[in-house]
Design a protein around this nucleic acid. Structure first.
Lengths: 355, 355
DNA sequence: TCTCATATGCTCTACTAGAGCATTTTATGA
DNA sequence: TCATAAAATGCTCTAGTAGAGCATATGAGA
């Protein structure tokens, strides 16, 4: 079998030369500025929190933001090194576990910059850390992530904001599409709404955090969309309530991506332990997982799965004053990382806590 | 419960102002050039292939490469739009499914650029497409991806190159670490080698494509490492065989990431169908999955799972001249994308085909 | 017509995860 | 001192799923 499937033409090598040093119109290379942004996540008192720094309180859009700064190739050996250095400088925190999330570059998502400044490409990172109560931050605050995404908080059942605010407004937005011929729509808005927000009996999927935020943005229902001057917001945007707390630039989108990734990854990689102290009880572990994923898990099965997967080992110590029978203390078995595809906390969602 | 966990100091807002327009030393913003690179994957005659364009054949390092070009904020509305436009220009192909993989920026991975040019950050993309036999390319060739990663091809059992070339050389590299005190090593090299390449009874994990490539790079065993002047390559690098075919810049790393993502994603999202023609038999579908994942699957179970998941529907037509009993033709049920978390081809690896 | 290769249907079994019952062990307060 | 609450922990039952293998159907080509 001939493994070379040539195209009709041959590539002309010098056609590519220009791409390295300069661009089409013969101008200087189209250089852009790269922003590094960190969504730093921890769990404090069973509440998932993110590390927030405040934007300029004088300006009209004084909003919360994530630690961030530009990538400086001359000073930063790698992207991640640059990120760590900005975070250290801005919050005093030394990052442990960190992973790259996504690189965003859509026009118009940085309304706060003026039009002459270079376009910004932002690379989002997720960092997981254990925030001890006696805060070791030089600056910044831990704020609950559900503060920015109230519709994601299913710990006490379906959040009212969905039925009260989100659903009716999204449906109105879907109606406005009715004049477009059905054939031309990629996926009908109403379908996307149903899937994202678990309407009409569709189950709630806790891993659609980003999709939901983007849908709300597209529909002009989050403040950032208004700030960026999205078309959908032009109609009757004055009487809209605020859905969750806004953030500067595209930081809320990055935080959504971070929550999304955390929820997904916790199930197949042992990342919860980055959020835990060195020693913990299985109940504390479970509460941490639930803080992130939402639904309540079956206690006995949770213990069986975690212990069975070899993720933890008893320290031999007990924790008393738990409010009941003392609990064995466990520690994370770091060795599992050396074993085959290291598993996560295998939890499947309960049979549909929708509605 | 007080949800604001303030740090010791308060953030000083104007501290952040400089980050938007200029950097520390008061120079112009540290702008960098962004490269968009596409790993375009298809399956032809049960062979997974990538779309390759040739580097400059005159230069010493005349090597294969992936379609790529710089992101031009003035012309490209989004990163992905830029990518599509470069691919169209360089190969004549109109991309269908595409997703972002990762953003790389390590120093020294672009040895071909001279030191005065701006640093390059490259954003890798994975595109899946159906390459019809009668090639519609204006330029570029489809080459088997195992050409670049021979150790990943387990379709005919464990590739000999592992025992013959890779294992002994990696072990030699691990030996060289023996003088470092054990406490200082993050994870012993020998452990990483065992896990990556499934030695000593460890099962082969087909989803560690990138990890394996990076390990070989770090050990100085792939040509790119020599090209980049990695320290590990300085000793006796002249007699080294070539492990797989090299590529220009960091393109082989991006292709490794693409293979990795494809292998992972095919299991939990219905992406195989991007590689299939509109109508196909279940056997063809199975062969395509096997081309990507490696191991052979149990035919009857595969059919049961695919049909049971509602991923396909019969067209009503039959395909004759299959070499045996005619097979029903199926098509992808696009509707599954609208159903709950759309499943992939749920295949678990057979009980360890490791040596 | 015979044989071959594949298509396709069905069953058996092991394992896993969801659920629930029951018991043990401490802290707390009447 | 003792009842009670709140957990911790052990066990069992069951439904569903996936791995394996057996058996049969059906067209192509010799």
């Amino acid at each position: 079998m001939n493994m070379e499937f040539a195209g009709r033409g041959k590539p002309s090598p010098d056609k590519f030369k220009h791409m390295i040093a300069q661009d089409h119109d013969g101008l200087a290379p189209s250089a852009v500025e790269i922003g590094l942004t960190a969504a730093i996540v921890a769990v404090l008192d069973n509440e998932p929190v993110a590390l927030i720094v405040r934007g300029d309180p004088d300006s009209a859009g004084a909003t919360d933001g994530l630690p961030f700064g530009p990538f400086e190739p001359r000073q930063h050996r790698t992207l991640e090194a640059g990120l760590r250095s900005w975070v250290r400088e801005q919050t005093g925190l030394d990052l442990g576990y960190a992973e790259q999330l996504y690189t965003f570059a859509d026009r118009g998502r940085h309304a706060e910059q003026d039009d002459t400044s270079p376009p910004v490409v932002s690379i989002g990172y997720l960092a997981l850390t254990q925030a001890r109560g006696g805060s070791d931050l030089s600056s910044g605050v831990w704020r609950p992530w559900y503060h920015y995404f109230p519709w994601e908080d299913w710990r006490r059942g379906r959040p009212e904001i969905i039925a009260a605010e989100i659903e009716p407004r999204l449906k109105a937005w879907a109606e406005r599409q009715a004049d477009t011929p059905a054939a031309q729509r990629p996926i009908a808005r109403s379908e996307r709404i149903r899937i994202c927000f678990g309407l009409d009996g569709t189950a709630w999927d806790e891993e659609k955090v980003l999709e939901r935020y983007e849908l709300l943005y597209e529909a002009g229902l989050v403040e950032e969309a208004r700030r960026d001057g999205r078309p959908a917001t032009l109609v009757g945007s004055s009487d809209l309530p605020r859905l969750g707390h806004p953030m500067q630039f595209d930081h809320r989108r990055i935080l959504a991506t971070a929550i999304n990734r955390t929820r997904a990854k916790i199930k197949y990689r042992p990342v919860v332990f980055e959020l835990m102290p060195d020693e913990f009880t299985l109940y504390e572990l479970q509460k941490t997982v639930e803080a992130i994923l939402g639904p309540h898990l079956h206690k006995q099965n949770f213990r069986r799965l975690v212990e069975g997967a070899g993720l933890v080992e008893p320290t031999g110590e007990m924790k008393t004053r738990t409010g009941g029978r003392p609990a064995k203390l466990f520690r994370f078995r770091r060795e599992v990382l050396l074993e085959r595809p290291a598993p996560g906390v295998r939890v499947t969602a309960p049979p549909s806590r929708a509605q």
